[in-house]
Design a protein around this nucleic acid. Structure first.
Length: 857
RNA sequence: GCCCGGGUGGCGAAACGGCAGACGCAGGGGACUUAAAAUCCCCUGGGGGAAACCCCGUGAAGGUUCGAUUCCUUCCCCGGGCACCA
């Protein structure tokens, strides 16, 4: 994947004369864009040479894409935002790393390959070339020397190495379990890849199967993963909440109920140990070991057998339907209450899930609505044990789930619920029947896939030594080229004999290679570390460079990765931190999730037929127009509707900007690319500025806008930054209309500032303008302007005057006017007097620089 | 059900508690042109008025405040996340 030369893709457009269209003439974007990109590549302006030499580093990262083929304008938003941020930081004198890579393993390549009878590698490489050319055409500049692709053996070798490290730590294990099975993709899926009971990829309803699979023990890290969300203050609140919900911590108690007449214990988890004395029966899930044991002993009633079978089948078909009425069957066994010794019947029911807690609950119908409904239906006893100090208590029509004090719970009667919890838990501890416990919703990460296009899991099974990891020195375990990858439900790698045969690393005897491949989320959980040493052959990543450059300063991507990718990446980094391989706890400092771009109210997709391809737009208006419109369309974190007419507006603006540059250079006889001394620089000293008049007004306005735009860019408000730039050009135009030319130093300064502000947003046009303005250096290297606070000041100020909060007049006062003078001027205004006449002025509020409010009665 | 967002002109949207609608799109009028395109100028939230001006207006209703699109309470609608989670 690595390019030997520091060049962009060779499909870049040559400067081409516009065919018949008048557009290209007044604003020659084709020539400008070709020349600018050529210059950036030739001058290697976007390459990070030595990571260890960077003084002020800025790591700007876009989530690397899956190479699915053509990019549309929605994808573009992501890269345009990142590019704008990177360019601003560069102008602010940061050493910037903005790399790009390809999340290149995965099912679509395989499916496309099956359809088109090509190899997934061929399809993937073709798409990468295509997408790279598109990115280049957008003027999005990455450090292509650092390009990586997760399907490249030089990369997945280290994905396999990571697997081995996790295996060494006991964090990778193989186990039997209920797994999500997609019958269409013919593979297992992680919990995170199942959305509304359907396969995230293809939308097929997912089935549950009992299979032996590989897992990463992410649950070991549940606590730090949750706790450290607090460190991510620069992440959107929304994403942190989603992660927090997904990890799902709940505090409560683990309680063991002996089963009458058996050795077995029924262990449950509850968040309400205070209601222990109100437990009147027990419920287990259909898949619970107790049910399995009873079935194998032939002790299940025919009713129970039928019920359990039906439930299991229903779960396969529609296990996510919540509206189902609560149903169950008594198992014919009894649990013994750990504190009272009471006998509680054990039921199996549809509303208890094996996947959470222990798959068994104590039912407290008076204080849990689900238990209440079940108890009512099957006429099970209900005991009230919590009663509020005031207000409605349990009344027999619905469960009371609120707070209160314990009743019918001797010897705990009268205790407030919180104290009751503690007292009951300690009583359980004393009796050896339970203890306080934290329960997590998070499950282990299922990483094996029975598909071809992924990194092979580096394990072998030896008939005499058992399961053995492949030694590091033998990595990578290469993915064989010759396989049948038609999905059969079994790994395609089984079809390649040569691949299957391995040598046992322990005894040297014949062994069999693991044929599952890894979930592609493993590939993407560490790629951001690889960019610092993308070609290293002796290690996954360079610890020193990574410690210097991470956490990533700005990570940008779609909110659809809020859970999966971001959680896994955080997990892997935490594992590495514990191993001493990295010195930071979190991989991404600032996270920005951009909104989707829709067309005709829907997400762009081939099936909707509403995809807006960028190529024709770039051909017609130029990349800068597309960039500017994309940034202007709305707040970047929000969804936005694409509007072709809006593109015209951006084009018109750039045309006006370009006319401004031409008028300016003509009026001042500037020679492009000359070393002519600059007319003005951001607040350059020694330049004589007019004290008043249109030139002074222009300067003030422009400096105010520099201030505004700098703040906008800092806060990702690119839409208002573009609007601010439009106002700069409008101000210059108005000035020109008034004064007739652009020869004043204030005009020169305005043109200079406008160009530097434009540089990150419409970089090609700004580059061309910068050259016309006489700068020998690229605008990429120009300093970001700073607003002169003094220039923003005005000699007089316009204040709004309100009477009782209603706007009534405008007054002009000197900037230095005192509060008393302002009050007086406001009350002297005839329009104000109209409303204050005959009334008593109670109070006058003066907001400096803004308004005056005269309060009358 | 719980937790996040969000509701502002014809449209995309602006607005540290301080002049609601910046900037742009669309629309209307005009200039230039034989004409069109492009470009430039003016108008463009609703109502009243000849005008000056006045009244209303940020999903709804209340509240806090000299002043609320902004803060608080309740409710309605839209988008997203989680969900028989014990």
């Amino acid at each position: 994947m690595a390019e030997p030369r520091p060049t962009g893709p060779d499909t870049a457009h040559p400067a081409e004369e516009s065919r018949g269209e008048e557009r290209g003439r007044s604003y020659p974007f084709r020539e400008l864009e070709a020349a600018a990109r050529k210059r950036w590549v030739e001058e290697r302006l976007f390459e990070l040479r030595d990571p260890m030499k960077a003084e002020r580093r800025f790591y700007c990262l876009n989530m690397f894409p899956y190479p699915s083929g053509d990019l549309h304008v929605g994808h573009g938003r992501n890269y345009i935002l990142g590019d704008a941020v990177a360019r601003v930081r560069k102008m602010q004198r940061f050493t910037v790393l903005q790399p790009m890579g390809w999340d290149a393993f995965g099912l679509p390549a395989e499916n496309a390959a099956i359809k088109n009878k090509t190899h997934p590698a061929v399809w993937t490489r073709k798409n990468i070339a295509r997408m790279k050319a598109q990115l280049f055409a957008w003027g999005v500049m990455f450090d292509w020397n650092r390009e990586i692709a997760s399907c490249d053996p030089s990369y997945y070798r280290w994905t396999q190495w990571i697997f081995l490290k996790l295996y060494e730590q006991g964090l990778a294990y193989r186990a039997m379990g209920s797994v999500n099975w997609c019958p269409s993709c013919q593979t297992v899926l992680a919990n995170e890849q199942v959305v509304d009971g359907k396969c995230e990829r293809c939308g097929t309803v997912v089935e549950t199967r009992e299979l032996e699979q590989w897992y990463f023990k992410i649950t070991d890290y549940a606590e730090p993963l949750l706790r450290d969300l607090a460190l991510l203050e620069h992440w959107p609140e929304k994403v942190r909440v989603m992660q927090s919900n997904w990890i799902g911590r709940s505090e409560g108690a683990s309680v063991r109920f002996p089963i009458a007449g058996r050795e077995a214990l029924l262990e449950i988890f509850t968040t309400r140990p205070d209601t222990l004395m109100g437990a009147t029966f027990m419920v287990v899930a259909a898949e619970h070991p107790l049910v399995v044991t009873l079935a194998s002993e032939g002790k299940l009633s025919p009713d129970a057998i039928r019920f359990v079978d039906r439930l299991k089948r229903a779960r396969v078909e529609n296990r996510f339907a919540v509206e189902t009425e609560k149903e169950g069957v008594a198992l014919g066994v009894e649990a013994v209450h750990p504190l009272t010794g009471a006998r509680l019947p054990v039921w199996v029911a549809n509303y208890v899930l094996m996947g959470y807690g222990t798959g068994a609950i104590m039912a407290v119908p008076a204080h849990d609505q689900r238990d209440f409904e079940f108890a009512t239906r099957y006429h099970l006893p209900i005991v009230e044990v919590i009663r509020p100090a005031e207000g409605p208590a349990f009344d027999g029509t619905a469960a009371y789930e609120g707070d209160g004090a314990l009743v019918h719970s001797a010897p705990f009667d009268g205790l407030p619920a919180e104290e009751g919890k503690r007292a009951i838990v300690s009583a359980l501890e004393k009796a050896g029947k339970g203890e306080a416990r934290v329960n997590w919703r998070l499950r282990d990460w299922l990483i094996s896939r029975q598909r071809y296009w992924g990194a092979p899991i580096p394990m072998v099974t030896c008939p005499s030594c058992g399961m053995q990891p492949v030694p590091e020195s033998e990595l990578p375990v290469l993915l064989p080229e010759q396989v049948e990858f038609e999905p059969t439900g079994k790994s395609p790698l089984l079809s390649n004999k040569a691949f299957l045969e391995a040598k046992c690393p322990q005894c040297g005897g014949p062994a069999r290679r693991e044929t599952d491949t890894m979930d592609t989320f493993v590939d993407s959980s560490w790629y951001f570390l690889r960019f610092l040493s993308p070609k290293a052959e002796d290690r996954a990543f360079d610890t020193d460079a990574v410690n210097r450059w991470l956490p990533v300063n700005q990570y940008i991507g779609g909110v659809e990765h809020a859970i999966l990718h971001l959680l896994y990446s955080r997990f892997i980094v935490k594992v590495f931190q514990r191993m001493g391989l990295v010195s930071f706890a979190e991989p991404f400092e600032h996270l920005f999730t951009q909104g989707m771009i829709t067309k005709d109210g829907a997400k762009m997709s081939k099936s909707h037929g509403n995809v807006v391809p960028p190529d024709a737009l770039i051909e017609r208006y130029g990349a800068d127009t597309v960039r500017l419109y994309t940034l202007f369309i709305g707040p970047p974190e929000k969804e936005a509707e694409w509007n072709d007419r809006g593109v015209e507006g951006a084009y018109r603006f750039l045309t006006r900007y370009w006319k401004m540059i031409e008028d300016f250079t003509e009026a001042n006889e500037v020679v492009p690319g000359s070393k002519r001394p600059q007319t003005a620089g951001g607040g350059a000293g020694g330049t004589a500025y007019a004290a008043s008049g249109p030139a002074r007004d222009l300067r003030r306005r422009v400096h105010q806008l520099v201030h505004q735009i700098t703040g906008d860019v800092e806060r990702f408000h690119f839409n208002t930054a573009v609007s601010g730039l439009m106002q700069v050009v409008n101000a210059v135009q108005e000035y020109q209309a008034q004064e007739g030319d652009l020869r004043a130093p204030e005009a020169a300064e305005a043109v200079d500032l406008a160009t530097r502000l434009l540089a990150p947003l419409a970089p090609h046009t700004a580059e061309g303008a910068w050259d016309r303005l006489g700068h020998p250096e690229s605008v990429v290297l120009a300093p970001w302007p700073s607003a002169d606070p003094e220039a923003q000041q005005s000699a007089s100020q316009t204040l709004a005057v309100q009477v009782n909060g209603k706007l009534r007049a405008q007054i002009q006062v000197p900037a230095a006017a005192s509060k008393a003078e302002i009050e007086q001027a406001a009350q002297a205004d005839p329009k104000v007097q109209k409303f204050t006449e005959g009334k008593q002025v109670v109070q006058v509020i003066v907001v400096p620089g803004k308004l005056v409010n005269v309060v009358v009665r």
